[in-house]
């Protein structure tokens, strides 16, 4: 935003700051009450959803992206695509283990593989 286009955003900044504090409190509250939150995935969905909302507040208002012109798309789109691409590229090998591990790294995963494949050699031959 150029200096000439500048408008007083004092109220908006105060509102966004309040919103960020509320979001932080929600994250903290979710952590405090995690015993009552069912399932494994609901807590991460809540806190990461809150984090995305907070990030949008900072990016759009504090970093003025909302008020900037179209150059923001040219600049941010490639970085965003590349940034998402890296975890996706790593996911099959490191995150999903689409192949069977003959040398499990720890007793827990060893047990987990036994739980997964009671007839141990069934998955072996197919990979």
């Amino acid at each position: 935003m150029s200096h000439e286009e500048h408008a007083d955003h004092g109220h908006l900044y105060r509102f966004i700051f309040g919103l960020l504090c509320v979001f932080t409190a929600v994250s903290w509250l979710a952590d405090e009450c995690k015993e009552y939150i069912p399932g494994v995935w609901l807590l991460p969905i809540i806190v990461l959803g809150v984090a995305v909302m907070k990030a949008l507040c900072v990016l759009l208002i504090f970093m003025h992206i909302k008020f900037e012109r179209a150059w923001k798309y040219v600049l941010l789109a490639p970085t965003t695509i590349l940034a998402i691409g890296l975890p996706l590229a790593l996911l099959p090998d490191v995150g999903v283990h689409y192949y069977h591990m003959d040398v499990p790294q720890d007793p827990i995963s060893d047990q987990a593989f036994e739980d997964l494949e009671p007839t141990s050699d069934a998955g072996h031959s197919s990979h």
């Binding site: 600049l75 965003t80 975890p87 827990i108």
Partner: peptide
């Protein structure tokens, strides 16, 4: 902003790797 673009990729590499490692590490 160009610098911040590289910074976004820098930290997403760490965060993405952390997520992927964590999802692939039972226990």
């Amino acid at each position: 902003w160009l610098f911040l673009g590289t910074e976004i990729m820098f930290f997403t590499a760490f965060i993405g790797t952390y997520l992927v490692l964590r999802l692939g590490s039972p226990g």
